[in-house]
C-alpha cells in the first residue's frame, strides 16, 4: 500500500513537473528520460562484469534503423521505434560472436573498435546513411488523442509524456529481468564465474544475453531520440557521449538498479541548472572530467553508497 502511494505520487509529480518549467527545460526533461533508459540498459551489461565502450553506437544503430524504416519505407513511427530496438539487438547478437571471445580490457577495446567501425560505415556510405551529415527530416511521432489529453508532438511536453511512458515500461522490464533467475545468473557470472561455470552455467551465453538485451533497450532509446530531434549524424553517437554515459554510471554507482539513474539525474540537474545559470556551459567537459576523477578517487561506490548509508541509519533508528 505504501509503495502504491509512492508510485502514484511519483506519476503525478512527473505529469505536473513539465508544466512548471521553461521550454528549454522541458526539452532537457525529454533528453533526461531517454538518457535514463540508456544508462539503465548499460547497467544490465555491467552486471556480467563487462564494460563496453560501444553502447552509445549501439544506441545509434536503433536511431538510424528507426529513422530509415519510417522515412524510406513509411513505417508507422511507434513500430519504427520497436524495429530500432530489434535492429540494435540483432547487431549486438552479431557483434557478440567476435567480442565475447575477449574479456575485461580486451572486450573494452574490442567494443570500442566495433563501435568505431559502425560509425565509420555510417560516414562512408552516403546511401542510405547520409554520410557525415547524417539523416535529416526524420518523421516525428504522429499526433493522437487519448480522450483526456491531446498529444501534439510539436510540444516537448507531449513528447516527454510519451517517452516517459515508454521508458518507464522499459525500466520495469529491465527490473523484472534483473530480479528473475536469469538476472541473478548475470550476477553469478560476474562475481563467481568459475563456480557458475562449474554449476553448468554457460558463461558466454549469459554474457551474450545481457549484451543483446541491453543493446535492444539502448536501440529503443536511440529511436526515441531520433524521432524527437529529427536529425542524426555519426557524431551524435561519438565517444564523448559514451564518456557521459560512463560518467553517469560511475558517479551513480552500478551496484544497484537506481544507482546509474541517480547519477544521470543528479549530473543532468547539475549541468542544466547550475552550469547553465552560471553561464559555464562551455566548461561542461572540464567539470565532467573532474567529477569523473574525483568520484573514482573518493567515492568509488558512487552516489548510491551515500543513499545506502542514509537509509541504513534511518533503519537503525
Amino acid at each position: 500500500m505504501r509503495n502504491f502511494v509512492i508510485w502514484v505520487a511519483l506519476a503525478i509529480a512527473l505529469i505536473v513537473l513539465p508544466n512548471l518549467v521553461s521550454f528549454s527545460q522541458q526539452e532537457v526533461l525529454v533528453f533526461l528520460t531517454i538518457n535514463i533508459l540508456v544508462v539503465a540498459s548499460y547497467r544490465l551489461l555491467t552486471l556480467t562484469g563487462e564494460w563496453s565502450l560501444g553502447h552509445v553506437v549501439i544506441m545509434g544503430v536503433g536511431a538510424y534503423a528507426s529513422a530509415l524504416v519510417t522515412k524510406e519505407l513509411g513505417l508507422w513511427v511507434p513500430l519504427g521505434i520497436i524495429v530500432g530496438g530489434l535492429a540494435s539487438a540483432l547487431i549486438a547478437l552479431a557483434l557478440s560472436v567476435p567480442l565475447f571471445r575477449m574479456k575485461g580490457f580486451y572486450f573494452l577495446i574490442g567494443s570500442f573498435a566495433a563501435g568505431e567501425i559502425i560509425r565509420l560505415l555510417w560516414k562512408r556510405f552516403r546511401d542510405p546513411f547520409g554520410g557525415a551529415k547524417g539523416i535529416k527530416g526524420i518523421d516525428p511521432m504522429p499526433d493522437f488523442s487519448i480522450g483526456i489529453y491531446q498529444f501534439d508532438f510539436f510540444e516537448p511536453v507531449s513528447y516527454f509524456y510519451f517517452s516517459a511512458v515508454v521508458v518507464a515500461l522499459c525500466l520495469w522490464i529491465l527490473w523484472r529481468i534483473e530480479k528473475s533467475p536469469v538476472g541473478l545468473t548475470f550476477h553469478a557470472v560476474h562475481w563467481q564465474d568459475k563456480l557458475a561455470q562449474a554449476s553448468g552455467v554457460n558463461l558466454r551465453r549469459y554474457r551474450t544475453m545481457a549484451f543483446v538485451i541491453a543493446s535492444g533497450f539502448a536501440g529503443i532509446a536511440g529511436a526515441l531520440l531520433a524521432h524527437y530531434i529529427g536529425t542524426i549524424n555519426p557524431n551524435s553517437f561519438d565517444v564523448e557521449v559514451m564518456v557521459f554515459v560512463l560518467t553517469w554510471a560511475i558517479v551513480g554507482g552500478t551496484g544497484t538498479f537506481y544507482g546509474p539513474i541517480l547519477g544521470c539525474v543528479v549530473l543532468t540537474i547539475l549541468n542544466e541548472i547550475v552550469l547553465r545559470e552560471l553561464g559555464l556551459e562551455q566548461t561542461r567537459p572540464l567539470i565532467y572530467g573532474l567529477i569523473l576523477i574525483l568520484s573514482i578517487l573518493f567515492m568509488p561506490n558512487g552516489l548510491e553508497s551515500i543513499v545506502q548509508k542514509v537509509t541504513r541509519r534511518k533503519d537503525a533508528k
Binding site: W51, P285, G289, I293, I296, P300
Partner: peptide, 23 residues
C-alpha cells in the same frame, strides 16, 4: 589496485586536458 579505476580516471583526465585546450 584498481586497473579499471585507473582507466576511468584517465578518461576523466582526457576530458580535462581537452577542455583546457579549448579554453
Amino acid at each position: 589496485d584498481n586497473p579499471l579505476g585507473g582507466l576511468v580516471a584517465s578518461i576523466g583526465f582526457l576530458m580535462v586536458l581537452q577542455a583546457l585546450a579549448v579554453l
